[in-house]
Amino acid sequence: MTRRSVPATGAATAAALSTTGTADAAPGRCAAPPEPMPVRLEVNGRMRALSLDPRTTLLDALREHLGLTGTKKGCDHGQCGACTVIVGGRRINSCLTLAVMHDGDQVTTIEGLGAPDDLHPMQKAFVVHDGYQCGYCTPGQICSAVAMLDEIERGVPSHVTADLMQVAFSDDEVRERMSGNICRCAAYPNIVAAIRDVAGRGEKA
């Protein structure tokens, strides 16, 4: 990792820091754009080196800088789930995190789960069960569903888990756990059917 000094904090502090950008800007005044910062991301198994304004979200890094437009920008505020990707095995909203916070992390997007001629079981199940209409939320739904089944497998409880010590798959669990992925076309029954199908076949990511 590149380490730059922080002029304002002195050499002793600066030695332990990685930083970039401008000095303090007065509130309300337009500051110069921050200096780009090197960021390395392992995206879908491939190490990518980027130089990014530190304000760049992980979502924008994927879409605008790596051309991976499968991950969608919906609300850009963590409310809709269209931007869901899997980082270090966990689903997160890529719109609510900075790319610089993920230097060195492993990121899986919809493009990394499967390809048109080699679909992931969850992608296949969404096709079979018609788990979409317009399709805009689908990449987020699928990434979320894959990581969600893993959470059930690991015993992570949910709001509808009756006994916190006994976590098991059910349609109610799916509906609760997928509540962070909104489908404006309301394909929910078919989304649940697709996920149930994958869980029932025992095929996991």
């Binding site: 332990a16 820091l17 930083t19 970039t20 950008g21 303090d24 921050p34």
Partner: peptide, 12 residues
């Protein structure tokens, strides 16, 4: 989003 300087300290 307004510009900011990004820091990654090594300890608390």
């Amino acid at each position: 989003m307004r510009p900011f300087s990004y820091h990654r300290p090594a300890d608390p």
